[in-house]
Design a protein around this nucleic acid. Sequence first.
RNA 1: GGAGGAAUGGCAGAGCGGUCGAAUGCGGCGGUCUUGAAAACCGUUGACCCUUCGCGGGGUCCGGGGGUUCGAAUCCCUCUUCCUCCGCCA
Length: 447
Amino acid sequence: MAYNSNPGPGRDFFLFLSSQIPVIMLQLAFIRENKDLLTKRLAIKNFDGQKIIPRVLDLDERRRSTQKELDDALFESNALSKEVGSLFKEGKAEEATKVRERSAALKKKSRELNEKLNKIKTELDKLLVTIPNMPHASVPAGKNEGDNAMVFEEAREITFSVKPLPHWDLASKYRIIDFDLGSKVTGAGFPFYRGKGARLQRALINFFLDEALNAGYEEYQVPLLVNQDSAFGTGQLPDKDGQMYDIPADALYLIPTSEVPVTNIYRNDILKEGDLPIRNVAFSSCFRREAGSWGSHVRGLNRLHQFDKVEIVHIEHPERSYPALEDMKDYVAGLIRKLELPFRIMRLCGGDLSFTSALTYDFEVYSAAQERWLEVSSVSNFESFQSNRMKLRFKDKNGKTRLVHTLNGSALALPRMVAALLENNQTSGGVNIPEVLRKYTGFDRIS
RNA sequence: GGAGGAAUGGCAGAGCGGUCGAAUGCGGCGGUCUUGAAAACCGUUGACCCUUCGCGGGGUCCGGGGGUUCGAAUCCCUCUUCCUCCGCCA
């Protein structure tokens, strides 16, 4: 793969940026032609584009005129160089020397223009990289999760003969998850699963993977560490710098989700239209620093630094991405239904939507002892935001090169599923395993 | 970790410092021929940027970055990756 930015270790992201060929997120042509719509929609994401967008367009204007100047200068100096060549061949050394001098002067000029151009580009990229993806028209306005719109709910009354225990108590009661041991060996947020707890995890992973295979996904096992180019490609950098664990000595990052390696498989590729759609699934452990997001509400499995997740990733034709998003939504709903958990689907409001996403559905299962809804999946359409960053394109019927749309979703994240399964299915005689999982666990009950 | 070698278009593979975006073969696409197909023959076949209503014109790119030169795929430095041999090793 002919792509190598060699950023070196450390975190000087904008230095890294400046070594790239045009790095953009939203396409400039799109910004140019839709600046009013864009500004309006970004406001839904609580992003103020009033100042930045005109500034971007101004820089873009300057970039183009400087480019033109440079190209003209290069044109001239190319012609002169050729002239020198043929003059020498004809033996007219004196004339050649004269032309050579003119060429040297031109060279100086183009060097300056080139520097100017690079400065403009760097400045432009710095700005572009701070503009989030434009939300889809259906995204509701709002500040935080309280403003998300419920699009579906499948509730169920869960009754207990005794007072139900939260999963952290069940975990120690049945000795299936050991948080203290994790703290001793690594730190908070890195639990050990043991005995039937470990087997339940393994069962869920296999169940999720088998379901995905049956649905036509191709399975991948991925590297758990990625380089900066990959972290940038899917949008973890620079927006979420600090949320990933990194290995400065090698300029690598521990993946926060397998979305990163799985989507970056296609970085800098031009696919054939017939290759689409691509539908991949991968299981991996995920690592998140979760800096500053701890509190009493994140006890037990609710928030971890390391957790397991099965992820589905779609690469779609732009015209097919929204139907595909609905398919993914239905697929994930089917998984939760098979595990017999009450759940609801939320359409994220502008304030809760991630930087890179145009439209996201969150899935929440109800955890009966905590009496809380727990987010277990997030299914998003990034449209061409990620593909533009990573130059992931396809050739359409007319031979035109266009950006694909990328989508992904958790199917599913394990810890909160485990929390809900434990809490909802507890009885005085133990925790019952849902029917579909039994052939994977090899037992019907944790007791 | 030590010693060597290599990196060119979808693939394979040429390329005295000047007219090389790059020979040639394969593949792909279009056409001729054929009842149809194959074979054969002819043509065509990279990405990106700027400019133009369009035709077209210009620029950049031969692993990445930098340098020498009027001029670099060709020379120099550096990084990365791959291959061979040795060592180590799940």
